[in-house]
Design a protein around this nucleic acid. Structure first.
Length: 428
RNA sequence: GCCUCGGUAGUGUAGCGGCCUAUCAUACGGGCCUGUCGAGCCCGUGACUCGGGUUCAAAUCCCGGCCGAGGCGCCA
């Protein structure tokens, strides 16, 4: 029976063992051979002596990153640094790796990020890189758990659509039999239709596509969006859902794999709520006082965002954005039509989530279509749902890769994407 | 899309008009070594992004293409 390497220290000294993995290194001293074996859970030294195996020559010539099976006994009195090793009785080469490797796994030379991505299957053999995705998985698990505990149901909306969600962003066209279609940039419109269907609380985890020609460390053309929509709710309430889900998730992940993250250089701390809130207008004033050339209605430049982020050492909300900076479906403030019941969640200088109370009134929505210069007719499938009993509602969309990137303090969103799609990368 | 910078062995780099038959590390191949663990020692293989041009002479300068990194605009 297979044993995972992380479980080896639970096994008694001298017991028979059967392990599988990759040969990370081999150190040869004539009639003595040390293999460093790695599996998904850890590493172990395998000591191979000529007199103990019947294919010593084959094992001696084994290449790095070959996949092998080792049967042998656990030696807990090993003089190796790990203090534990496997004395091999049988080493079977399941699949030999070619040499040289496209890039090293444990070599004392770095590789460019481009080289790493071109050889992502190897890059992900590095524990610290793979751990990013373990972290992402855990994070998402607990966000889902939180959502379920709050009565949300997980839904799946189409990614091939006939019209733009928000009008502004560029879409990837696809050919849909005899029609023209697009890859959806957001599940927004479908989430809202589901509010009209009485689903009350929904969330979705799925891909979103943006055909924007960005070339930055925080943009992807395909990313994973965690979307939430909730009926009879407003911006304030869903901000609470957001901060609580993040708190719940991060704190649970730390309980689970906090040590592992620390060992690999991802020092993260538990967080508490509520997150600080600051209005857009307050920040505009703050920036103006600090000699930034910015006025109400402007978005924050990256430089301004960096400046603002110095005031906060963790998550914070920027609320009450001007209507002109927000999509057509965003609810205006009832006392001031120039601002909206909207928010962004920031971590550091990067926006990880954006949300709002939505317009539920048909006439107001129609008016906003005109204001934003959108063609109402192409949104018929959506706007129809507002005529026959649409409840007030609010929600948000959270960029998963950006969230992971920022929590783990990675310096590029592509680091938290298995196979990133950016301005120029379409493979692997 | 605009701007800046860059492309030298499998990988990461040095060299930036003639000392280049191109540096160093790492990897790779071979040899020595029975407890290594960044193993060590010896030997070896291996590269100037492509196309034009300038020059007696180009990895090095100029123009263009291709590829990449980052910044901006925009956004999650």
């Amino acid at each position: 029976m297979r044993t995972y390497l992380k479980d080896l220290n639970k096994i008694e000294d001298g017991k028979d063992i059967d392990v599988y993995g990759w040969v990370q290194e081999s150190r040869k001293i004539k009639k003595l051979l040390f293999l460093i074996l790695r599996d998904n859970t850890g590493i172990i030294q395998v000591t191979v002596k000529e007199e103990n195996v019947n294919n010593y020559d084959e094992v001696y010539g084994i290449t790095r990153e070959s996949v092998i099976n080792v049967k042998g006994t656990v030696n807990k009195k090993s003089v190796s640094k790990q203090g534990i090793e496997i004395l091999a009785r049988e080493v079977q080469v399941l699949n030999a790796a070619e040499t040289p490797l496209p890039m090293g796994i444990i070599d004392r030379v770095s590789a460019d990020f481009d080289t790493r991505l071109n050889n992502r299957f190897i890059d992900l053999r590095k524990i610290d890189n793979a751990l990013i995705f373990r972290f992402e998985s855990e994070l998402l698990f607990f966000i889902r758990e939180y959502m379920h505990s709050e009565g949300f149901i997980e839904v799946h909306t189409p990614k091939i659509v006939a019209a733009a969600t928000e009008g502004g962003a560029d879409l990837f066209p696809v050919s849909y039999f005899e029609k023209k279609a697009y890859l959806n940039q957001s599940p927004q419109l479908y989430k809202e239709i589901l509010m009209g269907s009485g689903f009350d609380k929904v969330f979705e985890v799925g891909p979103a596509f943006r055909a924007e020609k960005e070339n930055t460390i925080r943009h992807l053309n395909e990313f994973t969006s965690i979307d939430v929509e909730m009926s009879f709710s407003d911006d304030e309430y869903v901000m609470g859902i957001l901060e609580n889900s993040i708190k719940y998730s991060i704190n649970n992940v730390i309980d689970n794999i906090g040590d592992l993250l620390n060992e690999n250089g991802y020092g993260i701390k538990k967080i508490s709520v509520p997150f600080p809130r600051v209005t857009y207008s307050e920040l505009i004033e703050y920036l103006q006082k600090n000699n930034f050339e910015i006025k109400f209605g402007d978005d924050f430049s990256p430089e301004a965002s960096k400046f603002i982020s110095r005031k906060y050492d963790n998550f914070y909300f920027i609320t009450k954005w001007p209507a002109e900076l927000r999509p057509f479906y965003t609810m205006p403030d009832k006392n001031n039509r120039d601002i909206t019941n909207s928010f962004d969640l920031q971590l550091g200088d990067i926006e990880v989530c954006s949300g709002a109370q939505r317009i539920h009134n048909y006439e107001l929505l129609e008016e906003n279509f005109l204001k934003k210069g959108l063609n109402k007719n192409s949104f018929d499938f959506y706007i129809k749902a507002f005529k026959f009993g649409m409840p007030p509602h609010a929600g948000w969309g959270l960029g998963l890769e950006r969230l992971v990137m920022n929590i783990l303090k990675l310096n590029n969103v592509r680091e938290s994407t298995l196979f990133p799609r950016d301005r120029s990368r379409l493979s692997p």
